[in-house]
Simulated scan of single mutants.
Amino acid sequence: MPDNATAQARQPQVDGAISHAADLAFLRDLIRTLDTGHPAPDRLAASLLARFGSAGMALSAHVGALDEMAGRETALPPFLAVVRELALRLYRSRVRRMDMLSGQDGLVAYLQACMGHEVVEQFRVMFLDEHFRLLADDLMGTGTVNHSPVYPREIMRRALKLGAAKLVLAHNHPAGRPEPSGADIEMTMRIVQLGRLMRVTVHDHIIVGNGRVHSFRAMGLIT
């Protein structure tokens, strides 16, 4: 007979939402599959869910955080890292096929997956054509825990090479709070102004934290 978590996981989800019980059952079954000798898959699944909030966020966690949670003596962290890479590849393929205007939720999910749990700041740029289709997704800078180098002229040079008409900027805040700093706003406005000169529009700047996001466009900082 299936246990309660598995039974609940098989129930239809309302409006596509995934329940806590479904995430718990998925993580537990994944742990059992990847490490058949794990002594406490239920306890580890519950710990991962408590720490990261969802199965998706747990699988997108930095490998160091997974080591801390699962323990280096188990085979789980490298296996989970492979699962994470597979998930990121699926996200990337979906992002490349979608219209960024209609696929904002998918874009945010992708950015959370690839940047949300990084321990240092990263700065990415999505280069789009005039119809909001993705031309390239480039990691343009990696820095420290609270800073990543950004070079507006390099961004514009890449945009012109690709023939991009629009940009979506993105970076992460490893501390978890996605609200922009004064430096974030100033840097974004420099890119916006340079883009106007080059006839390249900055459509949005998205900051991701641990499970939270901040959109400059949604907050009226970019129009």
Rank of each mutant, 00 (worst) to 15 (best):
L160K: 14
S102F: 12
T74R: 05
L134Q: 09
A65Y: 08
P180E: 08
L107Q: 05
T74C: 02
I207P: 00
I207R: 06
L76A: 09
R190D: 09
K161T: 14
A5M: 12
G141I: 05
C114N: 02
S93W: 04
E118T: 13
A21T: 07
R96C: 10
P180F: 04
M189H: 13
Q104M: 13
V200Y: 01
L135V: 08
A61W: 01
H173A: 03
D3A: 04
A45S: 07
G182Y: 05
L111K: 01
T142A: 13
A65M: 14
H62W: 06
A113L: 07
F26T: 11
G56I: 02
S181I: 08
A21D: 15
V14F: 15
I155D: 03
V119Q: 15
L30M: 14
R124T: 08
V202W: 03
A165R: 12
V82P: 06
V168Q: 01
R157Q: 15
I31P: 01
A55Q: 05
L80Y: 05
M219G: 12
D67L: 14
R190I: 11
V120P: 03
H203G: 00
D99F: 02
R97G: 09
A50C: 08
P77D: 06
M156Y: 05
D138M: 09
L76C: 10
D35V: 02
M140L: 07
G195Y: 04
M57K: 11
H205T: 11
L66V: 08
L221M: 14
T201R: 12
P12S: 04
H117C: 03
E130G: 08
L128R: 04
Q8Y: 10
Q112W: 02
F123T: 06
A75Y: 09
H131D: 14
E73P: 00
H171A: 01
G182H: 11
I206F: 00
I155T: 04
V145F: 13
Y91K: 06
R199P: 04
P12V: 06
R124G: 02
D184I: 01
I31D: 00
P2A: 10
